[in-house]
């Protein structure tokens, strides 16, 4: 895949052990940032709420036990909350779940406990540089953003180390609009490569979504293949797609 050159979409093709290729849609920094913000809100809410309850019981029971409990609460919510949820059956923290994201291995299968530990403990490093002093202070997540933008599969440092990617949990199906019925069926003038055939098929599938002008604009890019431009080019391309898709395959 690496050598195939730049791709415009964020679909990640992964070959499963069953020998079939599935496509996962990798999530970008904006949505992941939103999920992170949601998680932070949830974590703070849990700490404040449970901490408040512990303080109350502490005043009733007396003694310092509740202070120790609050320290433990802080520790578990801060470091283990994401590990617990991502290694569990959701495969996502509550924030990611709400936004509709999921963490998977680069092979596409659900992540293991060890991977959840790695990617979440390294979140500390992803939070660098900190506002304030060196390794202390408020995290800006500059490192995370930089590596997410720089890697092909939007991986932050923790993802690189744990070999995970964050993907959309459910791929949104494209709205189905019936394409204009094909009028004729023509064989392409030259032999086409598989990607080109796929592009033609996609053109036919999506033609119903576009206005007439847009169809012509796109079809004009394939002028060399269709040999004509404007409405004539569109119908030539449609005819070829029809021939390619519906020819009898024995």
């Amino acid at each position: 895949m690496e050598g195939r050159g730049a791709r415009l979409d964020t679909l990640q093709a992964i070959e499963l052990a069953e020998g079939v290729e599935v496509r996962l849609r990798v999530a970008g920094p904006l949505l992941r940032g939103g999920a992170l913000a949601l998680d932070l809100v949830i974590q703070w809410a849990v700490i404040l709420l449970v901490g408040f309850v512990l303080m109350l019981t502490g005043t009733v029971v007396g003694g310092q036990t509740s202070v120790g409990m609050i320290s433990l609460l802080w520790f578990f919510v801060w470091w283990w909350y994401p590990v617990f949820f991502e290694a569990g059956r959701w495969g996502a923290t509550p924030g990611k779940k709400i936004v509709g994201l999921r963490v998977v291995q680069t092979s596409g299968s659900p992540i293991t406990f060890g991977q959840a530990v790695l990617r979440n403990f390294l979140r500390y490093a992803d939070g660098l540089p900190f506002l304030g002093l060196g390794f202390f202070g408020i995290p800006t997540f500059g490192f995370a953003l930089a590596t997410v933008v720089a890697t092909r599969r939007f991986q932050r440092l923790g993802d690189l180390a744990a070999r995970t990617v964050v993907v959309y949990d459910k791929l949104v199906a494209e709205p189905e609009v019936p394409a204009p019925p094909p009028i004729e069926s023509t064989a392409p003038s030259v032999a086409l490569r598989p990607e080109e055939v796929r592009a033609l098929a996609a053109f036919r599938d999506r033609a119903g979504l576009w206005s007439e002008g847009r169809r012509e604009e796109i079809a004009d890019h394939a002028r060399e293949l269709s040999g004509s431009s404007g409405p004539a080019g569109v119908s030539r391309l449609m005819a070829m797609a029809h021939w390619l898709q519906d020819r009898d395959r024995r």
């Binding site: 007396g62 003694g63 310092q64 036990t65 202070v67 120790g68 609050i70 320290s71 520790f75």
Partner: peptide, 13 residues
Amino acid sequence: FGSNFMMFGHYIQ
């Protein structure tokens, strides 16, 4: 009472 546990929690965190 409980201060051992308090310090335990603190050390963990």
